[in-house]
Each structure stands twice: as C-alpha cells, then as structure tokens.
C-alpha cells in the first residue's frame, strides 16, 4: 500500500514536470517559428538591398529590431525550457525507486549538468531521456500494464523483449537529431556574421539561422511527442504499481 501511495505521489510530481516541460517546449517551437519568419523577412530585404532594390528603411529597421528582440526572447525562452527539462529530469530520476524504474540511470545532478555543459549537452540529455523511457517500459512481471502505456508499439516490443527495440526510442532520436542539427546550424551561422563586413556573409548567416530556427521548431514538435510518451509511461507505471499493491 505504501508503495502504491509513493508511486502515485511520484507519478503526479513527474506528470506535472512533464506538463510543464511540454508547455515550455511548445512555447519554444512557436517562438522559433516566429523568429524564422522574421529572419525570412530580413533575408528578403537583404536580397533586395544587394540586388540594388532599395528597401523601405522603416521596415528594415523594424525587422532588425524585431530580430534583436527575438534574440532576447529566444534566450529567455531557452532558459525557461532548459529549467523545465532539468526539473523534469530531477523529478523523474528522483522517483526512480518509487516508480520502480529499471536500468542504469544517472544521478539527478549529473543529468542536470549534462544540459549546461556545451558539447555534453548535445549527447547526454537524449541518453538520459532514452534511459528513462527504457526504464519505464512495461515488463512481463508487471502484469496489467495499460495498453496505452505501450501504445501501438506494445506487442512488438514485448515480443522482442525488454532489452531492445524500445518504441520510445524513435521519437527521442527524431527529437534529438533535429535539436542537434539546429544547434550546429546556429553555431555554424555565427562565423558568417564576422564583423559585418560582408553582405553575402550576413545573408548566409541569416539563412543558416533561419534554418536553425525551423529545425528547432520541428525539434520542439518531436520533443512534445517524447514528453507525451514519457507521461504515458509514467501513468502506466503508476497504475501498474497501484494495481499490484492492491491500492486504489
């Protein structure tokens, strides 16, 4: 009974963190889409300028100011999203015992650090998320797992065994590959800006940054899906634990 209560509380805490992270991720996607649009306008203006068609100064200035403001907004939103994801990792990893998460999982502290160390943050968070999803998969000994916890992957994954073929890995791979590509493009754009002494360089920087923002938006959609899978598995695990403990 105490195990069931603990699982319920932990699942609730993790579920809230998942909801928070989903909201922040959606916000990030929307902001990225908006910024991509602004950069598109800027790119068009740049092309007009370099082709000799003068552009309206007011619009040009407005675009530049909007992009600069978008940089600040993007920085803030990225910070919020990072905090939400860190909170999610802290809560999920802290509830590993209560939710009977299997497998080798890192500590909450190392998972948080993985988000803020450049370079490491391109690899480790996806690994932690993958391990979490893997550890929350339904197992044969946990009878009565809700079918929706495994989704449409359930039968195949159960048949193949727990150690390989996690259906949650596909959304994670999608999410993270787009995210890493967006980061690489964003970083790759920076050298083209240089000191602002080349119109073609600035145009390339704008184009790359716009592509990075579009990939960020796609990544946010995939991340939303990953969080959905995580939430479903947490709920399924809670129900499984509650059912096995005989407590409602």
């Amino acid at each position: 009974m105490s195990a069931g209560v603990g699982a319920t509380e932990a699942a609730t805490r993790v579920g809230r963190a998942v909801m928070l992270a989903r909201g922040a991720t959606a916000l990030m996607g929307l902001v990225a889409l908006g910024r991509a649009g602004l950069l598109g306008v800027s790119l068009r203006a740049l092309r007009q300028i370099t082709e000799g068609n003068a552009v309206e100064v007011g619009l040009s200035d407005l675009t530049d100011r909007a992009i600069a403001a978008g940089n600040a907004v993007g920085l803030g939103v990225a910070g919020v999203v990072g905090l939400c994801w860190m909170l999610l990792f802290v809560r999920a990893l802290g509830a590993r015992d209560a939710l009977a998460v299997r497998g080798r999982l890192p500590s909450a502290a190392s998972a948080v650090l993985a988000w803020v160390i450049p370079g490491v943050n391109l690899v480790r968070p996806a690994q932690v998320m993958g391990a979490l999803l893997e550890g929350l998969r339904a197992t044969p000994e946990r009878a009565g797992v809700a079918p929706e916890a495994e989704g449409h992957y359930r039968s195949a994954s159960l048949d193949r065994g727990a150690s390989r073929g996690d259906p949650g890995a596909a959304p994670v791979a999608l999410w993270w590959s787009f995210w890493v590509m967006s980061r690489l493009l964003a970083v790759a754009a920076l050298p083209f800006e240089g000191n602002g002494d080349s119109a073609s360089g600035l145009m390339m920087a704008t184009a790359l940054t716009m592509a990075a923002e579009l990939l960020t938006a796609v990544s946010a959609v995939a991340g939303w899906r990953v969080l959905g899978v995580l939430g479903a598995r947490v709920r399924a695990r809670r129900e499984s634990l509650v059912r096995s403990a005989g407590v409602c």
């Binding site: 602004l38 800027s42 300028i49 100011r65 993007g74 943050n121 602002g196 704008t206």
Partner: peptide
Amino acid sequence: RLFRWTVSLLGATQGPASTGKVARLV
C-alpha cells in the same frame, strides 16, 4: 562572440539583425 557561441550551443539561437548592416555595406 563567446557568449553568442555558448548560448547558441546551449539552445538559444542568436540571429543576426543584419539588414541595417547590409544597407550600410552597400
């Protein structure tokens, strides 16, 4: 520059507000 590299790597894309620069360049 280091700040922009870092935050871009960490997840905050820093787009170039460059139309004014290009207008000056041309």
